[in-house]
Design a binder for these strands. Structure first.
Lengths: 217, 217
DNA sequence: ATTCTCAATTTCGTATACCGTATTTGGTGC
DNA sequence: GCACCAAATACGGTATACGAAATTGAGAAT
């Protein structure tokens, strides 16, 4: 998504990274369901690697809240309750609301870049939920990115990572039902960014609240 | 399913946890300085354990941003720039500002609990920077805690973890120079929480901005 | 039939060994 | 001295082995 940030050190994707991606994918696709048990030995055999990188992957997933340790009985896939979704949307409101305010304060090129990103999503395939999700996230992520605050960006990533499946589906529904493109539905947000910090803040809160509404339907 | 519930106390502290704490402590106390190299083998020998738990600890510290991998030359202790501190304070503003608003909305017992926590810090030793830091954090953490949103609390912890040394010192200075107790300096914040959501939000922003001011001095 | 006991099994945490590669070192020719 | 190259070393990633805790299952005791 960004240009070359780390020109140094391309130490080949490690097995732990691959394991992480594969397991993540399995979780996201529903191949592994919430509540199900995840055992290192089993996963290692399935992935045809040793337990060490699998362990790395699971510890990482644990820290990200996607699985939780179940004593001596492996890990269990965390279940995302309706309440959790509300909490995630609240977290978004905190982080992205603040980011919107900052972007409005910064103004200039920052907002231009956001608008450019929004418009670049014009041609995406609206029937592909995954594409819609990614486009949506890219826009919101850009808003946080142009604040120039990497800490804030990390918080954003942490929230969105945890939200994956649920929110993805919600956003897909949002655009499908209302028959609006991702670009179309985010242009008002760009307008709000140009309308000053308070308007930007309010605009983002409203935008996120709408997302939660859709999710509930 | 009314089997014996685990009294979450001590599920056996793992060596990896101990290694994490020890290394963290060394980083915080300045025993290990920013820029210095950390090598698994060396650390393992110093702690008299094998490389495996040391590796776990380092990976965790890496994810928390306290160290970063340096290719084939070990890990290096991340240094916190002045700019980073600003970014951390901004992140606090986002998370804690939102939390204050929520607490004001929730009201009732939530605010009472915050006030109780603030008042419980009456008797701490003002000459102990560590104690002042902890008391301060406890108060702010309580505010986030009573929102009932665990995701928000995680964001809070992530920010404060990374801020450690710097902020600790800053807060120490704050109370030392102004000769106010932790309780005293936070009671206005409690008042703001009772004065409605906008006042709470503004109050928290002001409170955090003051902290940054002190840091700069 | 229910509970109790205990051994087999499961599963993780830790230690140790191995491998590949990046870095450093040491030597050689100029 | 200096540039270059080859060997040695340092280092993290991965595999494998071992031990301990805890769950499980089967049979004995009540």
């Amino acid at each position: 998504m960004s240009a070359a940030m780390k020109p140094i050190g391309r130490p080949n994707e490690t097995l732990a990274d691959i394991a992480y991606q594969r397991i993540s994918e399995a979780l996201l696709s529903g191949e592994i369901e919430p509540g199900e048990r995840l055992v290192m030995d089993t996963l290692a055999e399935q992935l045809d690697i040793s337990r060490t990188p699998v362990r790395d992957a699971l510890l990482r997933l644990q820290r990200e809240g996607l699985v939780s340790p179940a004593g001596r009985r492996g890990f269990v896939v965390s279940k995302v309750s309706e309440q959790d979704v509300v909490h995630l949307y609240q977290a978004r409101e905190a982080v992205e609301g603040y980011a919107a305010r900052r972007v409005a304060e910064i103004g200039g090129e920052a907002i231009d870049k956001v608008e450019k990103t929004v418009r670049s999503m014009e041609g995406i395939d609206m029937t592909d939920p995954r594409a819609v999700y990614t486009a949506n996230m890219e826009i919101h992520r850009t808003i946080v990115e142009v604040t120039g605050n990497p800490t804030l960006l990390e918080l954003f990533d942490q929230i969105w990572l945890r939200a994956r499946g649920q929110v993805a589906f919600a956003d897909y529904l949002a655009h499908d039902k209302r028959r609006t493109s991702v670009t179309e539905s985010h242009l008002p947000l760009v307008e709000a960014l140009r309308a000053g910090s308070d308007a930007a803040f309010a605009g983002m809160r409203k935008h996120i609240a709408e997302g939660l509404q859709v999710h509930r339907a």
